[in-house]
Design a protein around this nucleic acid. Structure first.
Lengths: 337, 337
DNA sequence: TTGAAAGCGGTACCAA
DNA sequence: TTGGTACCGCTTTCAA
């Protein structure tokens, strides 16, 4: 009970293995008589033969596959990235191999090694734990292996990043303009480096407005809704209570919304809530969330383009693409009373 | 600029390729002198050599990898399945290769072919479009290739399914007991077959209660939140207005919740909402959702166990594992006025 | 138009 | 304890 091989087909069709290869791949520069082709295809269908991708890729040096590594399936932002990568990659005739690392540093390193060992044609990485993967990655890059990082420019490879700076500043201006002076920040991501730029803007904006940066208003939680919920609970205990909560992503904002609701507080009358990413759900929550949109889908598509470009043109200079995040104001933010 | 191969390492260390293989794999039944081992490892580190998984798997016939195919990343239910599969698979020493098909029949077939061509050691499938993949799949099964289906028993392979029958009946009893007589059903999945059992129970329960099955209360939407929103909008137009809405998953329920909220209706005072899956977010929405929990994580773990079992024990009889869904009552359902 | 044969990068058996 | 080598399933010259 083994899967049929090229030889099996060749034998059944009474031709050589080379011939089978030619007809299966429709090789343009080799002409096969209609009669032979038919016999081969018959045999293929009969045996339900499917070529072995490993052997094929081993021999021809390409797998027509790009690998994508994402840190955490539990965050909707990443699905849109996946979707973007997948769509683009397929349009260009490649397969996608997806792996998630569940925000576990060790797993991330393992997974990266695994993907790279498979010798996919290119790798797209959204790393959260840079340290662990640094060695592998720089080596890969040094070998000229096509790698594009998403959301990170600390490696000397193609990269696409969302620039949150301006939009975050605008968000802060929006909140400050509404009269908020105590603004909590729920900062629950895998690694702190990931969003330091947003944190920096938060602090700068407060400083510029002549407001103190109260460290007790900054809460480092985890990646799950429950973490966002807990963080919000803690922040709501502070006195005086913050009048606005900035949440690092929509997913955690669900938890924050709940914490607020449980206390009988209304959004935005009693407290404003704003988040990042603007994933699909943001517009549908109650109330719809003000959010900084980073457009994961576009990020994903760009990353895929860069990857395929580099496969086809290995020597081209490194490219960095930035995609500006954008402030979307909805009804979860309002003036303080 | 190519990646180093076994030969490169052998040359640098001044040993044969076989020796490199032995030390890299730590082959137990072959003893290598400490001195040689050190030289090899040095060379490995120096070149940053990583074995080629394709070649390895081609030669040794196993890839230590199981493939997972899921239809739609946009539904949180599937992440927990992925999580369960991933955790279990890793614990057992396997890698996971993930692919999503975005609810596109053609893509699903392609993807399946792709994964199967990679000759992973086992395949776990959550198919939504059975027809297209039937041929490939039955052939695979006939060859004794390890396949487990998740949520589907129409193939002669190992399977794990959530049985919704009892829990759905309980849900209906719950709603009927609260006095609801017009219950809308938002049924927005990839293929209708996927949830026919739940639909059947819905209809039976109504019939048993002596209530009519009004087809205008059953709405087939799509998989996105917006679809759920639109479906709810349509159902809320019916006269008399349904007093309860059953939604096929939590994700779509977000949209339904929004539609209800926009009309100034309160949940559950004016209208009850209940859903399926009970994913992470269900407990955190406003109000927390009554939901039929199918426990994707457990489903995923089971599927992975079955897959690995079969890899290790190809001859064992086919197993079918059922996991009972469970009704979780929260505050989104209440008595009609 | 077709076939023979040399590898791709490993593994594992057999000898040395 | 180490090396030589056949072979996994396929692609791709080169000849016939």
């Amino acid at each position: 009970m083994k899967r049929p091989t090229q030889s099996d087909v060749a034998k059944l069709a009474g031709v050589s293995r080379a011939t089978v290869s030619y007809v299966v791949n429709g090789s343009a520069d080799v002409s096969i008589s209609a009669e032979t082709r038919a016999r081969v295809l018959d045999a293929v269908a009969h045996l339900n033969y499917a070529p072995d991708a490993r052997a094929r890729s081993l021999r021809s040096g390409g797998s027509n596959t790009v690998g994508l590594l994402i840190p955490d399936l539990h965050n909707p932002h990443y699905w849109s990235i996946v979707q973007g990568v997948e769509d683009s990659v397929r349009e260009q005739g490649y397969d996608l191999l997806l792996t998630s690392t569940s925000l576990d540093p060790e797993r991330e390193a393992q997974t990266l090694a695994g993907l790279s060992g498979r010798r996919v044609d290119a790798l797209i990485l959204t790393l959260s734990f840079l340290e662990q993967s640094k060695a592998t990655l720089t080596q890969l890059a040094a070998n000229g292996y096509p790698v594009v990082t998403l959301g990170n420019t600390s490696f000397n490879v193609d990269a696409v990043i969302a620039t949150y700076r301006n939009a975050t500043a605008r968000m802060m201006a929006h909140l400050l303009g509404l009269g908020h002076t105590r603004i909590g920040f729920i900062f629950g991501v895998g690694s702190k480096e990931l969003a330091t730029n947003r944190m920096a803007v938060y602090q700068e904006s407060l400083a510029v407005a002549g407001l103190p940066v109260d460290p007790s208003l900054i809460d480092y939680s985890g990646p799950r809704i429950e973490d966002g919920y807990q963080a919000a609970c803690r922040l709501l205990e502070r006195t005086p209570r913050p009048s606005a909560l900035l949440v690092i992503n929509d997913w955690l904002a669900i938890g924050a919304l709940r914490a607020v609701g449980e206390r009988g507080l209304r959004v935005p009358e009693d407290i404003s809530i704003a988040s990042f990413d603007d994933t699909e759900m943001a517009a549908y929550l109650n109330p719809p969330l003000t959010s900084v949109r980073s457009n994961g889908y576009a990020l994903g598509r760009q990353a895929a383009s860069l990857a395929v470009e580099r496969i086809r043109q290995p020597g081209r200079p490194i490219r960095r693409v930035q995609i500006e995040a954008e402030l979307i104001i909805r009804s979860s933010t309002g003036a303080t009373k």
